[in-house]
Amino acid sequence: MDTEMISSQYLVMIVTGIVMGTMARIMTIKADYRQYPSYPNGYLIHLVTGFVAASLGAVAIPALMTKNFVAVTFLTVAIQQFRDVRKSERESLKDLENTEFAYRGDAYIDGISKTFESRNYFALIVALVSSLTIQIVNLEQIWLSVLAAIVIGGLTFYIINRFSKGKSVGDIADVKQGEIEVKGSELFVDGIYVSNLLGSENAAKMFKDEGIAVVIHPHEEHFRIGLDNFGQRQAILFEATRALGAKRYHFSRKEYDDGRIVITLIPIAGDINKLLHTVRNTPILESVKKSSKLMNTKFIGRE
């Protein structure tokens, strides 16, 4: 019976891996101004999938050490599972599109669902590295091995977290308060034409009294490629309406000469500082990122 039992060393290895991997997932569940996925059920779903991912990573090394090479193929099951996480996240967010103040847009949904998928890989990799550390270090005092696993696992988490961290709008552009002006039924922000939907006197008065606006000035010319992207602007507008609510109107508009972008709305609650903070912290979507340096690279065959 004893021969069928797992050894205490492997047990420690697996438990340490699972705990480290699950911790990695917990630390990447954010409850920031975006308030997502800070719903109780959202937490639970992602913690459980994170735990499963960590378990798969943690048992890989013991499986290899017991010459159970076929068992390692379950990592492919893990990848499939993570893809399903991405898929279900995408479907869920698309289902919510018609219920929000503004559309998230396909580009933002794609970015969010990819992030959820990648965070499960965090759990898997951290768990795998932690259990691998215990196997490699293999000290007589098991607690020292566990300590080493915690340190190396923590370091791994830090590195991949930094690697996967993207930029936000505030990193590539100045975000300043815009001055709202209503001329007849037309809305202007800092002299940039935004909309002529303020045809009724009520609408014009409401926007004059309660409207707030920010103008985004890209630091460099090439940042315009990303910021001008419709998906990116939609994501910014979504975050703005999400954080402050939208009592009535919300608009985004790009100006062609300087590449300035206007985000304006009538908020339910909140002030200009909250809007500035929200816009600055909106992530730059992976799908719209362009590297100007890469475009200048001189590969063989190019002049």
């Binding site: 007849g184 039924s185 002529n196 939907l197 045809g199 009724s200 006197e201 009520n202 609408a203």
Partner: peptide
């Protein structure tokens, strides 16, 4: 003209555009 436009816009939960030639659109 303003009154009619307003009433339609309210009923249809729509927006109003005042065109420069004086016509109103409810969209």
């Amino acid at each position: 003209q303003k009154r009619i436009t307003q009433d339609i816009a309210k009923a249809m939960k729509a927006d109003v555009v005042k065109m420069k030639d004086g016509d109103y659109l409810v969209i």
